[in-house]
Amino acid sequence: MHVNVTDLSVSYRTTLILDKLNLSLPEGKLIALVGPNGCGKSTLLKSIARLLAPRDGQIFLEGQSIHSMSAKDVARKLALLTQTPITPDGISVRDLVAYGRAPYLNAFGHLSAEDKKLIQRSMMLMGVEDLAENSLIQLSGGQRQRVWIAMALAQQTNTLLLDEPTTYLDMAHQVELMNHLQLLNKNGKSIIVVLHDLNQACRYADMLVVLKQGRVVATGTPEQVMSEALLQDVFELNAKIFSDPIAGTPMCIATH
């Protein structure tokens, strides 16, 4: 297993967000974390990225406990795209993508020729190389999101975590972004993504992890997981499930 979470409890102040959560995620898949608001999916993602200290339990990444690793070691194995990253002023796209090399650089951040090549390649993979000298503020939401992913790619990690990367995008850019993620996944990157849109999750993910109140209630392929009973139980949603006429994956439509 690629990521192993055992008996993980995480609390924010006095509120328990994750409650003895257990989860095993295989390597090389595109995995979607879904669940209602406040179920703890973002917290789980941040815990896997070692941003939160658990109250209890362990997280293993490629067989190693992440809390026995240094922040730099973790940053060389997984990259995280947070929900609302801060865009610093006066920084070009190339400069921003270059920060992806930070876990490999010395205190002065000197980029080698090899680093520069990786930065260029990351921008090309996400189709933002033509924007390299632009300032980030000039870009559209979809372009910006691709730049952030290019930065994560420059980190050269096996695993990419994304927290609701499509939430603020229009539909066309959502599709474009998810296609990009799918392509990256086909090229060998393990991807764990928090998604709000269930139909999007079903369409793109190899595996769904459904959370409710800090616990995992179901894992498996979208076909295995999605049922009207589960939607009722987890989301308190009355919905019917159809087969997506294009992709053939499950698709839910609310009845009321």
Partner: peptide, 23 residues
């Protein structure tokens, strides 16, 4: 001056900076 590059990384926000290996 020694801290400059780290402060650059920090300007991406605490979470992003931490995920880039910064303490």
């Amino acid at each position: 001056i020694y801290l400059c590059y780290r402060l650059d990384v920090l300007s991406l926000g605490q979470e992003k900076a931490a995920s880039l290996g910064l303490k």
